[in-house]
Each structure stands twice: as C-alpha cells, then as structure tokens.
C-alpha cells in the first residue's frame, strides 16, 4: 500500500503498537524503536491519547472492598502503616548506611551544642535511585536547622541537575534547592520544616539547569525516602 504524504510509516506503526495489533518480531522491533527513538515514542503517546477516547463511554463500576484490601496488602504488607509511623523505612535502610550517614552528618554539622538543644533528635535517611546509580545520605539536624547531604554515588545527566525536595504528609513538595556539584553540602532548612522534621520525606528529582521552573518537580523523581530518627 502507499501511505498518504501526511501519514508517514512511523505514525502507522505507532498506532499499530498502541492497538496491540503487532505480534512476535514485529512487536519486538517496534518496542525497541520505542525505547530508543523519542520522536517515535511521542507518536505512540499521541495515539494513546487519541484512542483512549474509546473508553469514554465505558461506565465506572465500583470494585469490591475486598479487592481494595487485597491490593493494599499486596503492596504494603499485612497492615497499612501510615507514612507518619515510618516503621517500614527500616526494612529498606541498612544500619550501616544509617551509621555512616550519622557519622558523616555529625562530622559535617560540627559538634552538637552542649546545652538543652543536644536532646533534640537528629533524623537521617538514605536516598537510593530506582533506575540510576544515585545514592545520597542525608542527615537532618533540627537543632541547627540544617541538612547535611553526602552524594555517595551518581552524577546528574548532561545539562540536567539534581533538585532536593522536602515533602510533608498531604502537602506539596517544597524545593530545598539544586544540589551543587560538590558531593558534600549543607542546606538550610526553612523554619516551618524544622518543627516537623520527623514527618519529612526527602526526594531528588531530575531538573533543567537552575532547577524546576514551576516550583514543583517537573522531571523524573529519581529517589525518595522518609527520614528516620537516629
């Protein structure tokens, strides 16, 4: 067949992929192309957008309560522990990492004040990239209103930067700034975050130089983890 001039072969292929019409080697080849050709991936996304309208008139059907419970159990274990209780974080966080974070963080933050402030707890976490090498240790000291950051592994992509975010439960992420090239830095924590330090989840996103232009993460979230008391 001949293609219409305004509908190149790739656009038809993108539609066929979205419709799941391709099988075997043809499908594999299209998937490989999707993975390495952003222009083709954009055509696929456009067809997803066009064809999803076929589901517009499908009526919503409330699934059973049992189904919801089963899903939550499958994802979060037998009991759904709210983020604020943070018990589960220990599963993903080795003691060695915490000890290292504490050592580096406390070194970096200097000697703890000798007065009553010394009893203020210190919080720490390790941020590990899902799909990247990124590994960052963070120690948060409410007594000095500072976070000590140690980037142990991982580099920002070319012409991209890492931006650090603090998230309180039910609130939008607050930018703590772009991480400089220097792997060890100290970042000041805004006063309203200091008072709720125990509730903070730290996250790192991939952003254009200078940081997110919108005030909210715009690129991929590379790593996120709640802090734990040391």
């Amino acid at each position: 067949m001949s293609d219409a001039p305004d509908m190149p072969e790739d656009d038809v292929l993108a539609a066929e992929l979205v419709l799941s019409l391709l099988e075997g080697e043809e499908r594999e080849a299209a998937l490989r192309k999707y993975g390495r050709d952003p222009a083709f991936a954009a055509l696929v996304a456009d067809w997803q957008e066009r064809l999803v309208a076929m589901t517009d008139d499908i009526a919503a059907v409330r699934p059973s309560r049992r189904s919801r419970k089963k899903l939550m159990k499958r994802l979060f274990g037998s009991s759904f522990v709210p983020l604020s209780e943070r018990l589960w974080v220990w599963k993903g966080l080795s003691l060695a990492a915490i000890a290292l974070a504490a050592y580096m963080g406390i070194q970096q933050l200097g000697p703890a004040p000798q007065d009553a402030d010394a009893r203020v707890p210190v919080y720490a976490t390790q941020l590990t990239g899902d799909a990247t090498e990124l590994r960052v240790l963070a120690v948060l000291n409410p007594a000095t209103s500072q976070i000590a950051i140690n980037r142990v592994a991982g580099e920002a992509a070319a012409d991209r930067v890492f931006e650090l975010w603090a998230i309180l439960p039910d609130e939008a992420p607050v930018s703590l700034g772009v991480l400089p090239n220097n792997p060890a830095v100290r970042i000041a924590l805004p006063p309203d975050l200091v008072t709720q330090a125990a509730q903070i989840t730290l996250a790192i996103s991939d952003e254009p130089p200078g940081g997110s232009p919108t005030g909210a993460p715009t690129g991929a979230v590379l790593a996120a983890s709640p802090v734990s008391e040391l």
Partner: peptide, 18 residues
C-alpha cells in the same frame, strides 16, 4: 511517585471505578 501511601489510597478511591 514520592511513595506517599496516603496519596495512593486517595488515587485508588478516585479512579478505581473507572
């Protein structure tokens, strides 16, 4: 995306019927 379970729970409640 930031692993907020509470948000996931709300997303489920808002979208699961569709």
């Amino acid at each position: 995306a930031l692993k907020d379970r509470d948000a996931f729970s709300k997303l489920y409640d808002a979208t699961s019927a569709k």
